[in-house]
Amino acid sequence: MKHVLVVDDNQNILNLVELILESSGYSCTKANTAKHALELIYDENNNYDLILMDLAMPEMSGIDVLKKLKQDGMLHEQKVVFFTASSLTDEEKEDLKRIGALDAMRKPFSKAELLEFVGERLT
């Protein structure tokens, strides 16, 4: 079973994503702060197949997490994708990829969109 770490400061979104992913056969761990996410990632007992992370979060953003992982040489082990409620232009998507993200998608999303996006990144 593929294990996805979902990071978002919005608990409702976390629950929604968990519901969709688990209903489709994924195992899901939720983190509602970047800091918590990093703790989970750095815990050697945990192993995530994909990290689905919000961009805009208070205190520490998704990009900060990505940078931190990159800095600590952890990024090559992790597949990080973002989802964001911001307007996401192609250029912004490219910027994210340049700093180490696999891809990014927009919120809101339909169930099918989310599953397709996650599914493609895990094959």
Partner: peptide, 27 residues
Amino acid sequence: SAMITHELKTPLVPVIGYSELMLDGTL
């Protein structure tokens, strides 16, 4: 504007998502 967009859209995510899950029988 970008921020407002972000802030307005974020709460819509669960509304759209949950309603869809309700409609497709997941719930």
